[in-house]
């Protein structure tokens, strides 16, 4: 395919990248290219300036922090999926990163690009919301931190300013004794999530001591399943308790469920309960 002409820059630092964004209206950041390039090929977007941050080494890598992890925005899904540190401290993120697209996508696609695109069918926004991740954003005015749940504002829309780049993602370790799972109803063609459920369930003395459940793919931004979480908390996590909790997800959708030729809004919301149930079962089985 043949995208429209664009001016290409490859800055070596975040400061340089931010300067380029600030001085070129309509500039777009290019990272792994797996969201932007397909749109450019179809000429659905035609940025006048491309700022390729792919060679900024400072944005790559995974570090242990006090109580969690910090992941550079340019870290690929494949690196995250294979990371011992991520598998140990935030196994939910490693599991989900390993389910993004296919191997070729995971080898090029980055966590920062994935989040910055704010595709509601993407796997990682729901997962980072469930993990309570903090996103670091850098712009002309310096750095700021945003909670994962506050990042996306709508379909392909988020709080990033014109001159801002998502630079890193901080995640806390899941509570000891908690189990987590990401289960996904993948679109047969795109492998994006028609429904993706991220669940973290803490267990103490046979009862649910903490719960974080977020559903992606159904609405334009990740849906926190508060009703499911409330139903779980304090429950004995029996099959009946999980059935009841999963069914409660129907009350959590805010009325902006998406619909397309593959899956209607009605179907997504109805089947979400099944996937929530599967996620809860998997998370509970991994707890302890």
């Amino acid at each position: 395919m043949f995208p429209a002409q664009t001016e290409y820059h490859r800055p070596n630092s975040v400061t340089e990248a931010v300067d380029l964004l600030a001085s070129n209206e309509g500039a777009k950041v290019l990272a792994g290219g797996h969201s932007l390039i397909p749109l450019m090929k179809l000429r659905l977007v035609a940025p006048t300036v491309l700022v390729d941050i792919g060679r900024i080494e400072a944005l790559k890598g995974i570090e242990a922090t006090d109580g969690g992890l910090s992941i550079g925005a340019l870290t690929t899904q494949a690196t995250i999926a294979a990371s011992d540190l991520v598998n140990e401290r935030a196994p939910l993120l490693a599991e989900a990163a390993g389910m993004v697209g296919d191997p070729a996508v995971r080898n090029r696609g980055t966590i920062g690009g994935n989040i910055s695109h704010s595709d509601p069918a993407s796997d990682l926004p729901a997962v980072l919301t469930a993990l309570g991740a903090t996103l670091k954003v850098t712009g002309k005015g310096g750095d700021r931190s945003v909670g994962a749940s506050d990042f996306a504002t709508g379909l392909l829309e988020n709080i990033l300013g014109e001159d801002e780049i998502l630079t890193s993602v901080s995640v806390s370790s899941i509570p000891s004794g908690a189990g987590s799972a990401y289960v996904k109803f993948a679109h047969p063609a795109s492998r994006y999530a028609v429904i993706g459920v991220a669940a973290i369930v803490g267990v103490s003395d046979g009862r649910c001591s903490s719960a974080s459940v977020v559903v992606g793919g159904v609405e334009t931004t990740p849906t926190r399943a508060s009703s499911v979480e409330s139903a779980l908390l304090g429950s004995d996590l029996s099959d009946e308790a999980l059935d009841k909790a999963a069914a409660a997800v129907a009350g959590d959708f805010q009325g902006d469920a998406m619909s397309d030729i593959f899956a209607s809004a009605e179907y997504r919301q109805a089947v979400a309960a099944v996937y929530v149930r599967r996620a809860l079962a998997a998370a509970v089985s991994r707890a302890g």
Binding site: P38, I261, F262
Partner: peptide, 8 residues
């Protein structure tokens, strides 16, 4: 179903 993202 104009792309392989939609045509399964």
């Amino acid at each position: 179903t104009g792309t392989m993202l939609d045509y399964a």
